[in-house]
Structure formats: C-alpha cells, structure tokens
Simulated scan of single mutants.
Amino acid sequence: MMDQTEKLVNVIQGEYHISDDPQCVLSTVLGSCAAVCLTDPVARVGGMNHFLLPHRAGKDGEDVRYGAYSMELLINGLLKRGARKNRMIAKLFGGAKMITQLRDIGVSNVAFAKEFLQNEGIPLASQSTGGNAARRIRFWPTDGRVKQFIVPGEVEAVAPVIPPAPRPAHGEITLF
C-alpha cells in the first residue's frame, strides 16, 4: 500500500521516466516487455523504462519502444540530472512468455538488457524475469527500492461451439 504523500507515475509501454523526488513512485505492468530500473544512490536520482522489443536497425530504431534507444535516453537523462554511470545500479524485470504460440520476445528483451548493462559497466543488482505471468512493478527512484506483484494469469476458457437446434418446420413433421 502506498503512503498518502507518495506520487504514483505510471510508465507505459514505450516510455521512460526519471525523478529525484523522494515522494515519486514509478509503476508499470510488464508481460513480455522489459523494464530497467536505474538508481544512482549518491545523487539520489533514478529512472525506469518500459520497452517492447530489443532494437531495430536504422532510423526506425530511434523510438523508445526499442530497448537500445530507451536505454540510451534513460542513462543520458540520469547523467543530465547529476547521476554518474560508475555509481548506477540496475534492476531488471519482465520478459515473460505471455503467448505460447509466438516466438519468445521476452527472452530476447531480457538478453538484450543484460548485455547492454554489461557493455555499459552498470551492475545488475537484481532481476525477476521470465516465467509466464505478468508483473506489476513499483520503483522508488531515489533509493532504488522495488516492490513486485505477480499479476494472476487469466485462463481463458473456450466453450465448445454448439450449433443451434434446427427450428421445427411449420406444417407436417415426420418422426423416425
């Protein structure tokens, strides 16, 4: 439960948000998407992104829906607010396999995020990835705390299709 003085900011697909407000709580819901939460505990500033796919080549890749661009915006935004890359700490969430018939985009998102963070020299302090359930994340950007809630999966029951009974014809009916 949130404190009455806290300000909840929803970070939806394809967005990122940075804050140095101790009352700010960043929140998102993830399925196969991934979210990276970054904090500089000395500068007391942090941010969260929420990306749908790892990357895309060319000008089309310059969109926050893609992890490569979203990570650059998040890190650069933190640097502008006084964070230092050598003090940043990362936490990674999401990457679930939500639809079993499709390719596992979640695995690609998580692998991308881990490789990106490693290449940037930013340690991954914790993660909760994979599985087949959605997650709701609450992140306090100034101190790096995270609460995760597993969103119960809804099993969609498919009822068998039963054709309607034929209407009786008017007039004579022959019974066998």
Rank of each mutant, 00 (worst) to 15 (best):
S19I: 08
L8N: 08
L102W: 09
D63S: 15
P22T: 00
C33Y: 03
K59D: 14
A90Q: 15
L30W: 01
V9C: 11
S32P: 02
N76A: 10
L52W: 00
F51W: 06
Y69C: 09
K97Q: 14
E62A: 14
I18E: 01
K80H: 14
A90M: 13
L73P: 03
G106C: 02
V45D: 09
E72V: 15
V36Y: 03
A68D: 09
D21M: 07
R103C: 03
T39S: 04
A68K: 04
N49G: 00
I105N: 01
L8H: 04
I12N: 05
M71P: 00
K7M: 04
A34R: 03
L79R: 13
L78K: 11
K7N: 09
D104C: 11
R65A: 15
I99F: 12
Y16I: 00
M2L: 12
K80P: 02
V107E: 11
G14D: 09
D21P: 09
S27P: 01
E62R: 14
T39W: 08
K97A: 07
M48A: 13
C33T: 06
E72T: 15
T5E: 10
N76G: 07
N109L: 03
L52I: 00
L79M: 11
V45I: 15
L79I: 14
Q13Y: 04
M1F: 13
Q13S: 05
G106M: 06
V29K: 00
R65M: 12
I105K: 10
P54E: 02
Y16K: 03
L53A: 08
K59C: 12
D3I: 01
M71E: 04
L73A: 15
A35M: 02
E15F: 09
L38N: 12
A43M: 12
V25F: 09
N76Y: 07
L53V: 10
L78Q: 13
L8W: 07
G95N: 08
N109H: 03
L74D: 06
P22W: 02
G94S: 13
R65S: 10
N10A: 07
S108W: 12
C37L: 04
Q23C: 11
A83L: 04
D21G: 03
D3Y: 03
V11G: 01
A83S: 04
D40C: 09
V36M: 05
V9A: 06
D21V: 05
S32G: 05
L30R: 06
A57H: 12
L30V: 06
A43G: 14
D21L: 07
L53G: 00
K91S: 15
A57Y: 13
R56C: 15
N10F: 11
G61S: 04
D60N: 10
N49F: 00
L79T: 14
Q23S: 14
L79W: 05
K91A: 10
G31V: 09
K97L: 14
F51H: 03
G94Y: 01
Q13H: 02
R56K: 15
G61F: 07
R65F: 10
Y16S: 03
G14F: 10
L92W: 07
R84M: 11
M71G: 11
I105A: 03
N49C: 11
M1K: 06
S70P: 00
A34P: 05
G67K: 01
K85S: 15
V9Y: 12
I105M: 05
K7G: 01
I12G: 06
G31E: 14
R81Q: 15
N109A: 04
L79P: 01
G14I: 04
